[in-house]
Write a protein that binds this DNA or RNA. Structure first.
Lengths: 143, 143
DNA sequence: CATGCACCTTCCCATCATGGTAAGGTCAAT
DNA sequence: ATTGACCTTACCATGATGGGAAGGTGCATG
């Protein structure tokens, strides 16, 4: 299977497939006599795995670990779970940061008249003339 | 004031100050006879503005707009507010994505025994053997 | 005065995931 | 034989940031 078909089948662009090969995330693809890369179902399967991991926000080093664990018949699910929980912690941290930005901005926006006059608490806060509001800490969502 | 002092005073690294100058976000700094950049209080003020805008997650183009509006005596607060609300929408979208990742992963992690055996729903989902769980849509936080 | 240290300058490279483009090779169908 | 779709490698770009090299400036201390 050519790289274009592999891309369509796996949902990973040809660009990224070559990139993953270049950085050693996937083994170098077989080549046909034309020098075209040749993919089989296992390759597609692996690319799909990578895409799903990316969709969950895993970083390249984490995906490397996940791929290794996937291939290890004697893995412990504890190691996978630990990796996942670490990533959840990371996601929570990022969500917390974004939410703080959002809430601060929301407070400022509500305090802004939004009319034709120049007076604006948003600009004034950015200018340091008045301190940025500190939103209440939202409690993290639990599932 | 030298760039190092300006960096400490504004909370923007020397690297970034030069970068902002290079991309035209701030005017080219005055130079002393030594060719060292020279900053005054207005410059520090502007750098502080940029840092606070960055802390709220605004992108470079948005900060460019904010700086322009800051300097416009005849701005309308409506324009500022519109920019802020657009950014809030962006933040909400990013938060939503991250939360979906987080919740999916949380479901998977809870379903994983985390013991010494290899069986693991996290790996199986990534491998496409079972579908990824679809978490309930969390309602957006309101302030 | 000389040396050293802290600071500055420009320039290049790296990240991370991704895309664009250019110049050229392959292959199947017309 | 030509065309068009596909492939190859190689380089450049993003956005915000940092690292480092090679070399200049300026001040304090011996």
């Amino acid at each position: 299977m050519q790289i274009g078909q592999a891309a369509r089948a796996s949902g990973v662009s040809t660009k990224m497939i070559r990139h993953y090969e270049a950085i050693g995330l996937i083994p170098a693809a077989d080549r046909r006599s034309s020098n075209y890369r040749d993919y089989d179902h296992d390759d597609i399967h692996r690319l799909g795995f990578i895409r799903r991991a990316r969709d969950l926000g895993f970083s390249m080093p984490e995906i490397r670990d996940l791929l290794r664990l996937w291939g290890e018949g004697n893995r412990s699910s504890a190691e996978v779970k630990q990796l996942a929980e670490k990533h959840i912690t990371d996601l929570d941290a990022r969500i917390g940061l974004l939410r703080e930005m959002r809430d601060t901005l929301s407070i400022l926006s509500h305090a802004c008249d939004g009319d034709s006059r120049p007076h604006c608490p948003i600009i004034e806060s950015l200018a340091g003339e008045v301190p940025l509001p500190r939103p209440q800490l939202a409690e993290p969502a639990t599932v």
